[in-house]
Design a protein around this nucleic acid. Sequence first.
DNA 1: TCTGGGGTCCTAGGACCC
DNA 2: TCTGGGGTCCTAGGACCC
Length: 433
Amino acid sequence: MFALVDCNNFYVSCERAFQPALIGVPVVILSNNDACIISRSAEAKALGIRMGEPFFQARSLIDQHQVRVFSSNYALYGDMSSRVMNYLTDVAPEVEVYSIDEAFLGLHGMERYHGPLEAYAREVRAQVRQRTHIPTCVGIAPTKTLAKLANRVAKKDPALDGVLALDTPERRQWALNQVAVEDVWGIGRQYATRLHALGLTTAASLASCSEAWARRHLGGVVGARLVRELQGFPCHQLAPGEDGRLSRKSIACTRTFGRPLSAFPDLLGAVTAFASRAAEKLRRQGSVAHVLTVFISQSRFGSGPPPHTRSAQITLPTATSNTLELVRHAHAILDRLWQPGTIYQKAGVVLDGFEGTGQPQLSLFEKAPAVTRPQSAALMQRLDQLNARYGRATVQVATALTSTPNQPAPWQGQQQRRTPAFTTSWDELWEIG
DNA sequence: TCTGGGGTCCTAGGACCC
DNA sequence: TCTGGGGTCCTAGGACCC
């Protein structure tokens, strides 16, 4: 059996944990640049504010109902997430951290020690709430897809009090009838439209389709697995990370600029900063990357024909996590992509093709193995220590700097409504009193 | 005026190899 | 020279997720 533990309105809940005055009132959290709404309290949802809606479009509704609005504070959310996940790894034999606010638990053999799983889930839920002030819902089922579905029903039906276990065929069928087909995990906009056109509107109707039918209409093997999972046959295993930590297969740092940019030095500043940040994340998970992609984009919303993006990818001669090397290669790619007179709105750096730092893979064309040079590793370690201690980007590559010290870089946007990093920054510690 | 960021998996097709 | 079959690697693009 699997359990899916999902935090309710996670970013809003994090803010509420430190500002109890926000409880019971409508609250929304904004994306980077204060651009879109990415988390809503139940009260905000009830007002009709939509997930992903641009802030300026929801503005009148927000003003009218005095909705509290905050910029996103990822330092806070990341720290709160770790607290929740650390607790879960203590109480379940296997944990897969699926996202910042969700985890799958493997509960094989748990009944023997804990009795009915529903009671165990209620205890976990109560403990998470007591320790972190984060509310959660728990869905329990024989497959991951059914656990997601159970979680969704538990969230919507107040009578269930946040927990639903699909441990009998009757309960499973009942839950399948509660959920619309577009709300099934793995059914997005395209498939939902197609399924509705064929008269399939509930999860139950999709579960009654044959595997072969799903293979034909829902993207091959992916759809076949989806239907089998709804029928109760597990097709997705748990992927537990080390110590509950995620190990990514690609790492990206991409941003929409605070304002349109066209000058090469401005673009270079952004790309340098993004490559540095991506390299930092790469080192934190102990990998080196073999593949580097850089892209620069014009506005998605302007007139004129697509494509609005130019990108290029290179395979590095030697896999690395060294900021200076990655920045040098990213700079060279940008030289090829940048065109004078073009107005850019966004850029990004993506790292791929990872190897563990310890076991470099030998390339046929290299004279020497792709080992990280000790000198370079020590330098990067020192860099990470300084930035961890004194704040991100205390030490950085010179091309990432702005011409005017102490000013935000040209590519940086607005974060006017950010709350303090209550838990992670010495300057912004929570004050009690 | 303002419209996010970071991931995963799968498929198809071409190049190349045995 | 012609033929068939099977495999790998790479890229681009689609669909979906939180």
